[in-house]
Simulated scan of single mutants.
Amino acid sequence: MNLTCQNSFEVRVEGSPGSLYLVATPIGNLEDMTYRAVRTLRECDIIAAEDTRQTRKLLTHFEIQPKQLFSYHEHNKGASGPEIIRYIIEGKNVAIVSDAGLPAISDPGSDLVRLAVAEGISVIPVPGANAALSGLIASGLPTERFTFIGFLPRERKDIIAQLSSFQAAQGTLLFYESPHRVKKTLEIMLEALGDRNVALARELTKRYEEFVRGPISECLSWLEEHPPLGEYCIVVEGASAEEEQRERDAWWQELTLEAHVEHYESEGMSRKDAMKKTASDRGVSKRDIYNSLLNN
């Protein structure tokens, strides 16, 4: 029996009716499925799956006959989430799974957890494989402090803005990326963060698992000769203590882009030179400054 503290103490008994189980599934190698995960999926009244077709393959492999398989994903969570919560309140145990790895990490499972917590429902993790942490521990980069970011935005200016917010973070940074976007993402990282050491973890736990380690520039050269295949976890070296201190001491941190540019204009610089200087301060390209001001 475990105790969890939310607003008040709650006695949580595994197997009691009306609980939400977050069940990890393999990220590639089916042998990473735990005994506890198999038992939980067999015993729960409902399995909520991101992709029911994918989950059926997993259940068939482990000879699990689901009592009820429920679709829950990004596009139907608004309607399916409250319905799942209603089932749990009525006394049913529900297991939620994603296509691979831990549910609620880069998928809508986190929204279901929030609904469950708001209703005072017991939320029980059934841990297992995770791509980001698997990539981190084998990267050769520091593991003492890290930040999981997941997938970056689609637009270049939004990627720059998000990366810039982590420019001075000392902890290792963890990203997910698709094969057709990984080169573009690394090119923007090189521009926004500098030529930091990274590890590209591809096809984790699968037959063709691969790690490429080195400065971003060298990894880009590698990808030119070895076209990207499979899903990637990108592990990026954090800022040095000196970089973090410089960022903390930056006088312009609280200024908007427009105010930053206007500061240099007030000192007699042309608009063009002011934007160039602002870009230099922030470690981004002048084009990004121009585009950001143009869109505001």
Rank of each mutant, 00 (worst) to 15 (best):
T4M: 06
C5T: 13
Q6A: 01
S8M: 10
S8I: 08
E10A: 06
E10L: 11
R12F: 05
S16I: 02
P17F: 07
V23M: 03
V23T: 01
A24F: 06
T25R: 08
P26I: 04
P26K: 06
N29C: 03
E31H: 14
D32Y: 07
D32F: 05
D32E: 15
T34M: 10
T34N: 09
Y35A: 12
I46L: 04
A48P: 06
A48E: 14
T55Q: 12
K57I: 09
K57Y: 14
T60V: 08
F62W: 12
F70D: 11
E74Q: 12
E74C: 01
H75S: 03
S80C: 09
G81E: 14
P82V: 00
P82M: 03
R86Q: 14
I88H: 06
I89N: 13
K92W: 10
I96M: 12
V97K: 05
S98T: 13
P103R: 09
A104C: 14
I105H: 07
S106H: 06
P108Y: 09
S110R: 12
S110G: 08
S110F: 14
V113P: 10
R114K: 10
A118Q: 14
E119W: 08
E119S: 11
I121W: 11
P127W: 12
S134Y: 11
I137W: 12
S139I: 05
G140P: 11
T143Q: 13
T143A: 09
R145Q: 14
F148V: 00
G150A: 01
P153Y: 00
R156Y: 00
R156Q: 02
K157V: 00
I160V: 13
Q162T: 05
S164L: 03
S165E: 15
Q167I: 02
A169D: 15
F175D: 05
S178D: 10
S178W: 11
H180N: 08
R181I: 00
V182C: 03
V182E: 07
K183T: 09
K184D: 05
I188L: 09
M189E: 13
E191S: 09
V198H: 09
V198S: 07
A201H: 08
R202D: 03
T205D: 10
K206I: 01
E209S: 02
E210S: 02
E210T: 09
F211N: 07
P215K: 04
I216G: 00
L220K: 07
H226T: 05
P228T: 00
P228M: 04
G230S: 07
G230T: 04
E231Y: 04
C233W: 11
C233V: 15
C233D: 11
V236Y: 11
G238E: 14
S240L: 07
A241Q: 15
E242Q: 15
R246E: 15
R248G: 02
R248N: 12
W252T: 01
Q253Y: 15
L257V: 00
A259D: 15
A259Y: 10
H260A: 07
E262W: 12
E265M: 14
E267Y: 09
G268L: 10
R271K: 15
K272C: 01
A274Y: 12
K276I: 02
K276P: 06
A279Q: 12
R282I: 03
G283D: 11
V284S: 04
V284Y: 04
S285T: 15
D288M: 05
Y290H: 08
S292E: 13
